[in-house]
């Protein structure tokens, strides 16, 4: 006879499996379809001889997603590299000093974080046309800073808040100035947190869609915009879409795993501990 404990255990495994299915199935299905031969794409078959045809198709002309991947990489990396030093300096000042207008500035930073991207892109579309920055990587890096910078300031501020001040004080007493203290004491202690903020910022820029949709034409297109090119006259080529999707997902998954302990602080900007 089944004991009460056994029943609970079976129940747990069952609910666990349902949750796994919910979380993993869409990702699994994209992964599977990416390796399907074309004739199996329009069926729900699970078994087939896997092929790399879709990856060849999206990397070769006319799709040529290689440069798009490179664009995504350059734009995301540059945005992060520009945003992080600025964010660390500002976050440090916001956390360690009390000054006039501090609250107003912090709230302003938080509100810019919540701005709908469509509001930001509207004036930039007109401005970039005049500055000839439409369809350039510089234009995209500039506008991506609007989401990444406020976000990293808040996140890193949360981490600085959590850091004890005693070591910094000791260093100041020993004759270091604020910048030396920040450079040689605080920064090394903050390194893991800065990496976390950097990874999150990279993921946001890598996945970004709206800015690239409106501000790129050909040269500066990113990989998420490449998804749109899998539309053909006869409909969407789901095998190509899936292969592209897999290239979009994999780096982000690997990065997410490296910072999984900080995921919640990341998304709520350090607010919920």
């Amino acid at each position: 006879m089944l004991t009460r404990k056994k029943i609970t255990e079976i129940g747990n495994v069952l609910t666990g499996s349902i949750i796994i299915l919910f979380l993993a199935f869409p990702i699994f299905w994209i992964g599977l379809t990416a390796f399907k031969p074309e004739r199996y794409v329009f069926s729900t078959k699970f078994s087939f001889a896997p092929t790399l045809d879709s990856f060849r198709a999206i990397l070769q002309a006319p799709l040529s997603f290689g440069p798009l991947t490179l664009n995504s990489l350059i734009i995301s990396a540059s945005t992060v590299i520009i945003a992080l030093p600025l964010a660390v300096m500002a976050a440090y000042a916001f956390s360690r000093y009390r000054f006039r207008g501090q609250q107003a500035l912090l709230i302003w930073v938080l509100i810019t974080q919540f701005l709908p991207p469509v509001v930001v892109v509207l004036p930039f579309f007109a401005l970039f046309r005049q500055l000839q920055l439409v369809d350039t990587k510089i234009g995209l890096i500039w506008i991506n800073l609007s989401i990444v910078l406020p976000y990293s300031i808040w996140m890193i501020k949360g981490f600085v808040d959590a850091l004890p001040t005693e070591i910094e004080q000791a260093s100041l007493i020993d004759g270091c100035n604020e910048f030396q203290t920040l450079r040689y004491i605080t920064l090394p202690l903050l390194a893991p947190s800065i990496i976390t903020a950097g990874v999150f910022s990279f993921i946001m820029t890598w996945n970004e869609f709206l800015f690239a949709l409106i501000l790129t034409r050909q040269e500066a297109r990113t990989l998420t915009i490449g998804l749109l090119s899998t539309h053909t006259a006869t409909g969407i080529r789901w095998d190509w879409m899936s292969a592209t999707g897999l290239i979009v997902m994999i780096p982000v998954f690997i990065l997410s795993l490296t910072i999984r302990k900080h995921f919640i602080q990341g998304m709520t900007m350090g607010a919920v501990k």
């Binding site: 949750i19 796994i20 869409p26 299905w29 329009f42 998804l227 969407i236 999707g245 997902m249 998954f253």
Partner: peptide, 30 residues
């Protein structure tokens, strides 16, 4: 499963749209 929880959020929203569109197709959507 707690480790798995971080993955769906990391999927690009644009790709999520396509993925569900594919899976909801009336002829071959899973």
């Amino acid at each position: 499963i707690r480790t798995l929880l971080i993955f769906p959020f990391a999927v690009s929203p644009a790709l999520k749209g396509y993925t569900f569109r594919f899976m909801l197709n009336p002829e071959y959507g899973i």
